[in-house]
Amino acid sequence: MTNHILNVENLRTRFQTPDGEVEAVNDVNFHIDPGETLGVVGESGSGKTQIFLAVMGLLAKNGKATGTVRYKDSDILNIPSRQLNKIRGVTMSMIFQDPMTSLNPFLKISKQMTEVLVEHRGMSEGDALKRAINMLDRVGIPGAAQRVHMYPHEFSGGMRQRVMIAMALLCDPEVLIADEPTTALDVTVQAQILDLLRDLKKDFNTAIVMITHDLGVVAGLCDRVMVMYGGRVIETGTVRDIFYDSHHPYTEGLLKSMPRIDTASEDSLFAIPGQPPNLQNLPQGCAYQERCDYVMDRCRAARPPLIGFDTGRASACFREDGQ
């Protein structure tokens, strides 16, 4: 009935730790369509990465996810890894901030790239190698035919990130989840990687999830945005909604506190006071209350629900209902 390629409902993740249970993700709902880019924004500990580790079945051993994660027509949350492996890394891939943690330092790139093709596509070693070289070429690695036989440490940071993207793209995924893929890179290399993602979207209609804390990256790449705070979605909308008509005080604060390269200012930067919340010890009521300029008594008593108020628009703040 819909053409959502990924549809997540009521997703929660909980971790058992020596200090008690931690709820990293709470009641998260979203969907993504083919060719669409969803930006997921938030500070460290906001739960933005955990959502997608849960989706990919990659939560740490002490973590448990509940809810539904529908990929096309089937629920893939908590299914056995044998079944999940038919999807993950094949039609749904994830790339990470640090390529070295995803590449095996002992294996040549050729081995790491052809394995998945031989395994999932039943290709011959020779054909798989050709495709691997082809893909490295596509992501802009010069001399791909020679470099495919190198080890990960022989590549620079930007090149390694490209190798990881090439690996993620080998089986033409329909969904690409990118977790801070450019945070560790220089701006010039970041610009190249972002161009590459834009091409993917254009050429293959790939659905992309961009997890980042950089609002500049979101502004340039994303169609819709989901803002996370304290393990919950606190605002969602189109990229224009979020940047030009934000409703949640946290979104407003984030936008104001970004120093911008296109404006000069002698004044001090706007800073959100205080620290991001500790998930183990969330206050009663709104998680943002301690840092919010507009805090009211009712924010301390109850948590504002995420309320939709326009097509695809929602915000979790009591300011919304007529003050």
Binding site: V187, A191, Q192, L194, A219, G220, Y244, D262
Partner: peptide, 22 residues
Amino acid sequence: AVPIPDPEIERNKERIVLTGDL
């Protein structure tokens, strides 16, 4: 190459793209 947190400006600005690595 520095992204600007404003969709209109960021999508329409002129860029000088450097090729390759250091």
